[in-house]
Simulated assay, not measured.
Amino acid sequence: METNRELIRFLTDHAGQLAEDVVERVSGLLGDVTDEELKQARLMYAQLWKALADTLRTGELRVPEALMRWSRSNAAIQTKNSGSIAAVADRYPPSRDAIADLLLEISEQLGVSLKEYAHLSKLVNRFLDLSLQEKYYAYERLSKLYQSDAEDELAELSAPVVPVYDGIVIIPFIGRITDDRAYAIMNKVLPKVAEMNVTCTIADFSGLAAVDDHIMHLLQQVEGALELMGIHVISTGIRPHLAQSIVNSGQALAGRSYYGNVKLALESIIK
């Protein structure tokens, strides 16, 4: 019992130095690590040692919030930089080894039994497992958010709104139109058109990367939505494969007028 109290006091009083020892032992094994990352790691490990002491004192697992914040922060950095979660996960084995070595040194210094040492190691591994789990969950959540934001940006790039005259805009459809991009176009691009008091839209399809029956249906939905908004739609740039898809589908695009290119469409409008 006395050994336990002495261990708790030691972990609490020396949390900062123990954190410094972990970082010093691990930093040389991790490759490129910024000074800010090292600073945050020291703060996190100091809280980890204190949480270990609190857990021993109360008998209840006290997972430090600093550890969870650190885990989420690392996941956010990796996601923002398009990095791999494996790059962060690879840091855990050397951290476990460094902490295990320190626990062994502390146990020998304070006369901690093998059973107590095993219990300490189990608690530390539990902390680190929860940290790694939190990191994976945060990375997955943030990756989905970044992917969603990227899809919205790609959608607007896939169908930019180009004003040419009062009430007239060109929407060039560029690249590959997927379900997600078609949905984003409906929710991002079309409202922008509505705000511009547009009366005529030239939908140019010359930049499409590929067209099949499904994409054809998506394009019909986009043009149909424009028509329902009271906007006259002119279709241009219909290449042979798109024309064939229109014929095969048995349904025309919403545009009531067709021209080979944007120049001819504009001449028909402003003549």
Rank of each mutant, 00 (worst) to 15 (best):
V88N: 00
Y139E: 03
I106H: 04
I85S: 00
R91C: 00
D129F: 15
L130E: 02
A87Y: 07
I99G: 10
Q133H: 12
Y117H: 15
S84K: 12
Y117T: 12
L102K: 08
E108M: 11
S84R: 09
R91A: 00
Q147K: 15
H119R: 15
E151W: 08
F127D: 01
D149W: 10
E140T: 11
D101S: 09
S95D: 04
E151F: 13
V88R: 01
N125Y: 07
N125S: 08
V124L: 02
A98Q: 02
D101W: 11
L132D: 01
N125A: 04
V88G: 03
S121Q: 08
Y136I: 13
S113E: 05
S148D: 14
L104C: 06
E105F: 13
A100P: 13
I99D: 12
E151H: 09
G111Q: 03
S107M: 03
S95V: 03
R141G: 03
E105L: 15
D97Q: 13
E140K: 06
D97F: 05
I99W: 14
E151Y: 11
P93L: 02
R96V: 02
K144W: 01
L104A: 15
S107I: 05
L114R: 14
Q147R: 14
F127K: 06
D149C: 07
V124T: 14
H119M: 09
Y92V: 09
L145C: 04
A86L: 14
L120C: 05
Q147A: 10
S95R: 00
I85G: 00
L123C: 01
D129K: 06
G111Y: 02
A89Y: 15
D90M: 10
G83S: 03
L128H: 15
L142V: 13
D90I: 14
S107T: 03
V124M: 01
S148C: 08
G83T: 07
D149R: 15
R91N: 02
H119K: 05
Q133W: 15
K122A: 08
E134C: 04
H119F: 11
E105K: 09
D129Q: 10
S82P: 12
L120Y: 10
E116G: 12
L120F: 14
S131D: 04
L130Y: 00
K115C: 11
L123A: 01
K122V: 07
K122N: 10
L132G: 05
N81M: 10
Y92D: 07
Y137P: 00
R126W: 07
L110I: 05
R91E: 00
L145A: 09
Y136S: 13
K115H: 12
S107G: 03
D149L: 12
N81I: 04
A86I: 14
A100E: 13
Q109H: 12
S95F: 00
L145G: 08
Q147P: 02
A118T: 15
R91W: 02
N81C: 06
L130G: 04
L145M: 09
S84L: 04
L142W: 07
K115N: 13
N125G: 01
V88I: 11
L102D: 03
L110A: 12
G111W: 01
P93E: 04
A138W: 06
L142H: 09
A86W: 14
K144G: 13
Y92L: 05
D149E: 09
E140S: 06
H119D: 05
Q133T: 13
R126C: 15
L104P: 05
L142Y: 01
